[in-house]
Simulated scan of single mutants.
Amino acid sequence: MEQKLQLNTVDTLYIEVLELLKALIKTQSFSREEDKTAEIIGNFLADKGVKYKREQNNIWAKNLYFDESKPTILFNSHHDTVKPNQSYINDPFDAFEKDGKLFGLGSNDAGGALVSLIATFLYFYNRQDLKYNIILSATAEEEISGQNGVASILHHFGELDFAIVGEPTEMQLAIAEKGLLVLDCTAKGTPSHAAHPNDDNAILNAIDDIQWVRNYEFPKISPWLGKVKMTTTVINAGQLHNVVPDSCQFTIDCRVTDQYSNKEVYEIIQAHLKSEVKPRSLRLNSSSISEEHPVVKAGLALGRTCYGSPTSSDQAVIPFPSLKLGPGLSTRSHSADEFIYLDEIKEGIELYIKILEQIIYYI
Rank of each mutant, 00 (worst) to 15 (best):
E2M: 10
N8R: 13
T12K: 15
I15G: 03
I15M: 12
L18I: 02
L18C: 01
L20D: 09
K22L: 10
L24F: 02
K26T: 06
T27W: 07
Q28R: 15
F30Q: 14
K36Q: 14
T37W: 08
L45T: 05
L45E: 12
L45P: 08
K48Y: 01
G49Q: 10
G49Y: 01
N58F: 03
I59S: 07
W60Y: 11
W60G: 00
W60C: 00
A61W: 03
E68M: 12
L74W: 03
D80F: 02
N85D: 05
Q86V: 14
F93Q: 10
K98G: 00
D99W: 07
L102M: 06
F103G: 08
G104A: 10
L105F: 05
S107L: 03
D109C: 05
A110Q: 11
A110M: 07
A113G: 15
A113K: 10
S116E: 08
S116R: 04
A119C: 14
T120F: 00
L122F: 06
Y123F: 15
Q128H: 05
Q128S: 14
Q128N: 09
D129M: 04
Y132L: 01
E141V: 13
E141S: 07
S145A: 15
V150I: 15
V150G: 04
I153V: 13
I153E: 00
F157Q: 04
L160H: 10
D161M: 01
P168E: 05
E170N: 14
E170I: 02
I175Y: 04
E177H: 04
L181F: 05
L181V: 03
S192A: 13
A195G: 15
P197E: 10
P197C: 10
D199E: 15
D200A: 11
A202T: 05
D209K: 01
V213K: 08
N215E: 15
G226C: 09
V228P: 02
K229G: 00
T231R: 06
T233V: 12
T233I: 10
V234D: 12
V234G: 12
A237I: 05
S247I: 09
S247H: 13
C254L: 00
T257N: 01
K263W: 01
E264S: 09
H272V: 04
S275C: 05
E276H: 11
V277D: 01
V277R: 02
K278T: 13
P279C: 01
L282R: 02
L284G: 06
S288I: 07
S288W: 10
S288M: 13
H293E: 03
K297A: 06
A298W: 04
G299R: 11
R304M: 04
S309N: 14
P310F: 02
S312F: 13
S313Q: 06
D314C: 02
D314G: 01
I318E: 01
F320Y: 09
P321D: 10
K324S: 10
P327A: 05
S330I: 14
H334K: 07
F339N: 10
F339H: 12
Y341D: 12
E347Y: 11
G348Y: 02
E350M: 09
L351R: 08
I355C: 04
E357H: 11
I359T: 02
Y362W: 12
I363E: 14
